[in-house]
């Protein structure tokens, strides 16, 4: 639950037109939420993405941050593996979102097609949700501070990219892409470690 609220808070965008009154952030599409959640649950994939960004001249601290993630053993301590569904990593968030929606911390709006199937789920973090986060941070700054920092970092990688594009980016990693349906997506910690070592060796 903490994960989702922090992601909505820091990876959400400015509320657009049509947003509920008072909304703090807007998470347009559940797909984007699943994508940023994947990065939070798999620090090695995030580290890989950070390195990609640095190599693509997108940022200067990608490699250093990736290195720190591995040094802190986050892939081992923070990993929450995700199952690959038909269209990539996905997990049912209804149970997590239920109390948030119930309490009015988050507002949910599905876009329904003509055949009554849902085309898109959109989420807004409401002021009550922002207060909830502040309460968490006040109660356990160390525990919940990590979620805040990590969500902020993921935001720098996800930027305002849409859910499909983020998923497409994550698919570029062969381990992700080659995972069979309904199987857990495997860690790539060793590969990232090797990547970092070869970057260091090249720099030396």
């Amino acid at each position: 639950m903490a994960r989702v609220v922090f992601l909505l808070r820091f990876c959400g965008l400015e509320p657009a037109n049509g947003a509920p009154v008072g909304a703090v952030t807007e998470m347009r599409s559940g797909q984007r939420l699943q994508a940023v959640d994947f990065w939070m649950r798999n620090p090695d994939y995030l580290a890989d993405a950070l390195i990609d960004d640095e190599e693509a001249d997108g940022r200067a601290d990608g490699v250093a941050l990736a290195k720190q993630i591995l040094a802190d053993r986050e892939p081992q301590l923070r990993r929450l593996p995700m199952t690959k569904w038909r269209f990539g990593a996905w997990e049912e968030l209804s149970d997590v979102l239920a109390p948030l929606l119930l309490g009015g911390l988050v507002v949910h709006q599905p876009t329904v097609r003509g055949d009554r199937t849902v085309a898109e789920h959109d989420y807004w973090l409401m002021p009550e949700g922002r207060d909830f986060i502040d309460t968490l941070l006040a109660a356990e700054p160390k525990t919940f501070g990590w979620y805040r920092d990590r969500a902020e970092l993921i935001a720098t990688v996800a930027k305002d990219t849409g859910g499909s594009a983020l998923k497409a980016r994550q698919y570029k990693r062969i381990e992700y892409a080659s995972t069979a349906g309904m199987a857990l997506i495997p860690p790539i910690t060793d590969a990232v470690q090797t990547r970092l070592e070869s970057i260091e060796a090249a720099a030396a």
Partner: peptide, 30 residues
């Protein structure tokens, strides 16, 4: 150790979140 650390983190999170959520006043049927 990692497993225990994870569990500890989860416990600590729950210890804060669960009472908090419990105090939230529902506004609508979920």
């Amino acid at each position: 150790a990692d497993e225990l650390t994870k569990q500890l983190s989860a416990l600590r999170e729950d210890a804060v979140i669960v009472p908090l959520i419990g105090r939230v006043r529902p506004v609508a049927c979920p």
